[in-house]
Write a protein that binds this DNA or RNA. Structure first.
Length: 346
DNA sequence: AATTCGGGGCG
DNA sequence: CGCCCAGAATT
C-alpha cells in the first residue's frame, strides 16, 4: 500500500527524538503510554522523566505509596491513570513475578490498559501485528480516505480500527504505529496543516476535495455544568490547617483538598459566614472569615466549570487534628488547590 | 451508547 | 471561547 510506504518513509526522516523511543522495555513503554493518554507529548514529557527517575523499575513503583504516586502525577489530570498505574505495578510484581504480559490479549487485562495501549505495547515491545488507533490516527485516516463516520461512536471505533489493521506494515508494526501517530501530530495537525508540503497530499481525498477542515467528524459533547465550590482554609494560631481526602466517586479521587462546601449559587461575604457557622468544624466556635479571592476563580474541566472561592478562617485552635501548614506540600492536590497554596504562600 | 474522568495550549 | 490531546472505565 502506497499510504503505508509514504508514512513510514516520512517517519524515518522526521521523527522526534523522545526518551521512550530509545527503549523497548515494556515498563518504560507502558509508563509512557499511560502518561500520554489524552495528553500531548510536550505536557507529558517532564512527568515521564520524573517517573523514570523516581521509579526506575516496576518494583520501585509497586513499592511506592499511592499518595507519592499521585503527588508525582499532580497537575497532569485524569488521576485514575495514576491510581491504575500503581495498581497494575503491584499486580505485575505480586502476581506476575515482575514480568509484563507479552501479547495484546493479556496486556488488555491490565487495569488502565485499553485497546490503544495494549496495541501500542504489543507492537512496540513484542512486534505483534496490532494497529493503534488514537486521536492522530483518526485524523490521518479520516482525511486521507475521506471517512465521515463519527470517530467518537462505536461504529467509528470499529471502522477505523479495521482500516488501520489493513494498512499496518506487518513486517514492522512498531515502526508503522509510531509513524502514523507522529505523522498526525506533526504533519496532519488538527488546525491549519501545511498540506502543500505533505507527502500524502496527492492521494488525500479530503485535501483534493478541500474538506480537510471538516474531518475528522465528531459528535458534539454536552456543555459543561457549573458548580460552586467554597474551600475553607483554616489557619490556627499553632500554624495548622485542615486537608481532607476526596473519597468515593467523582473528580480528584484520592486527592486532598481544603474542607469543601458546595453550594447551588455563588456565596457572598455576609451570608456565607451565617451559612457555615453550624458546620461541624465551626460549631460554637469564634472565628474570623476573610474571602481570599475577590473575583471567583473559574476552573475549567472537560465536563464541569468550577466557580471557586477560597475562604480564610482564622481560628484559635482546630477541633480536629489537622496538619502543620509546613507539611501541606507533601499532599497530592488538584492544580487549583496547588495554585492557591503557591499564591497564598503558606 | 453515553457519560465521566484534567489540565494545558492554540487559533 | 471551542477544540484537541499516543483513551479507559463506568453507567
Amino acid at each position: 500500500m502506497i499510504f503505508t510506504k509514504i508514512v513510514t518513509r516520512w517517519y524515518s526522516n522526521n521523527k522526534r527524538i523522545l526518551p521512550w523511543r530509545q527503549t523497548k522495555d515494556p515498563y518504560y513503554i507502558w509508563l509512557s503510554e499511560i502518561i500520554l493518554q489524552q495528553t500531548q507529548v510536550k505536557q507529558g514529557l517532564p512527568y515521564y522523566e520524573a517517573f523514570v527517575s523516581k521509579y526506575p523499575s516496576v518494583f520501585d513503583l509497586a513499592n511506592a505509596k499511592e499518595n507519592d504516586v499521585l503527588k508525582l502525577w499532580q497537575g497532569l489530570g485524569y488521576y485514575s491513570r495514576a491510581r491504575n498505574l500503581h495498581t497494575t505495578a503491584k499486580h505485575i510484581v505480586s502476581d506476575l513475578n515482575g514480568v509484563f504480559p507479552n501479547n495484546y490479549k493479556d496486556l488488555l487485562k491490565l487495569k488502565g490498559v485499553g485497546d490503544y495501549t495494549a496495541s501500542a505495547i504489543a507492537s512496540i515491545c513484542f512486534n505483534e501485528n496490532t494497529a493503534v488507533v488514537d486521536g492522530n490516527v483518526y485524523r490521518v485516516l479520516s482525511r486521507y480516505f475521506e471517512i465521515d463516520t463519527p470517530i467518537n461512536s462505536s461504529k467509528g471505533a470499529k471502522e477505523f480500527k479495521d482500516l488501520a489493521q489493513k494498512l499496518i506494515d506487518k513486517k514492522k508494526p512498531a515502526e508503522f504505529n509510531q509513524a502514523i501517530m507522529e505523522f498526525g501530530a506533526v504533519q496532519c495537525r488538527p488546525k491549519n496543516p501545511d498540506c502543500n508540503i505533505c507527502p500524502l497530499n496527492s492521494g488525500c481525498m479530503a485535501f483534493n476535495k478541500n474538506r480537510i477542515h471538516e474531518l475528522p467528524f465528531k459528535i458534539k459533547s454536552a456543555k459543561a455544568k457549573k458548580r460552586h465550590f467554597n474551600f475553607l482554609v483554616f489557619i490556627s494560631k499553632d500554624q495548622k490547617t485542615i486537608l481532607e481526602k476526596r473519597e468515593g466517586k467523582g473528580i480528584w479521587q484520592n486527592l486532598y483538598q481544603f474542607p469543601l462546601i458546595e453550594t447551588t449559587r455563588e456565596q457572598s461575604n455576609g451570608s456565607f459566614k451565617n451559612y457555615i457557622k453550624s458546620h461541624h468544624l465551626l460549631k460554637n466556635r469564634s472565628f474570623e472569615l476573610v474571602l481570599y479571592n475577590k473575583d471567583v476563580i473559574i476552573h475549567k474541566l472537560s465536563h464541569q466549570h468550577l466557580y471557586t472561592k477560597f475562604w480564610i478562617i482564622n481560628i484559635d485552635t482546630l477541633n480536629v487534628n489537622g496538619i502543620l501548614v509546613d507539611e501541606i506540600r507533601d499532599f497530592p492536590v488538584p492544580i487549583i488547590i496547588s495554585n492557591f497554596i503557591d499564591a497564598f504562600n503558606f
